[in-house]
Design a binder for these strands. Sequence first.
DNA 1: GCAGGATGCTTGAAGTGTCAAGCACCCTGA
DNA 2: TCAGGGTGCTTGACACTTCAAGCATCCTGC
Lengths: 153, 153
Amino acid sequence: MAKTRWLSDAQQQAWRRFAAVSMLLPAALESQLQRDADLTHFGYWVMAMLSETQDRAIRMSELAALSNGSQSRLSHLIARLEERGWVRRERADEDGRGYLAVLTDAGYDKVVETAPGHVEEVQSLVFDALTVQQVGELDEICAAILPRLTPGC
Amino acid sequence: MAKTRWLSDAQQQAWRRFAAVSMLLPAALESQLQRDADLTHFGYWVMAMLSETQDRAIRMSELAALSNGSQSRLSHLIARLEERGWVRRERADEDGRGYLAVLTDAGYDKVVETAPGHVEEVQSLVFDALTVQQVGELDEICAAILPRLTPGC
DNA sequence: GCAGGATGCTTGAAGTGTCAAGCACCCTGA
DNA sequence: TCAGGGTGCTTGACACTTCAAGCATCCTGC
């Protein structure tokens, strides 16, 4: 067992703050969406992705990868969204095992109605606090970290 | 209703990456701690905080604030940790309503045993990807965002 | 053409978080 | 001193995520 590489003081401070943000920010977004749209952040995120694609339809597995969720998580979510009439499932033509998640018109309307309030929340919680330069730095930092988090690529 | 302040292209890109990191990083840490120590990230975080305090004891409400969790969440967590023998509760002397969460010796050992693997994971997922300068930038970015996330102060 | 294994997705159960309600104790003013 | 309201924490019910198991379909080699 190699010697532990403990965090330096600067790293420790950054880590505490970063960890706090990654705990509080999701909670804040969750709370806004729950309050204003009776929606989960993940649920909104998935519907928003669907709304931006051609035909408003994607394969389940592809959608799971895009939204950074497990297949099981997505499957449960889509089942709930389906009950509410915002999404429906269709068999994939090319592969009888696969399913397409399709955003319904009601689902599209829901996204359109929810987006402004959510975007405003993101602006006021995150970007209003940052300079243009910091936005770029954040982007680069996340781009550096991201590959280490996705086992696939 | 004011006009929606949509995200600029740069903001949108940063947001997508940042959102992805805030989804994947917690999941990765969760997974490592679950696998290696049968512990939640929040559970580890709370025990680690307790281990660093004088007397290894803090008031529940204070611990909830420090760990960025709700009182209810902390209460449930401490109940589970208590069952496993890592924490116990004591009535607060000064205020009969309050409780102290106290880390037991077994709990302290658990933290000591778990810390190296967890720190190594943080190093390899986050800090190994960043330059010294980026660590500073990340710290400042989080410091700028943080006040907007804590309603209290 | 078909057995055996891989793939895409679903399902059920167990664990954890949130919300609202509740209990016990503290403090203030009359 | 004691009624009324505030505070600290817990509790129970419900929602969501995960994990492992399961089902249906596809593909490969023989």
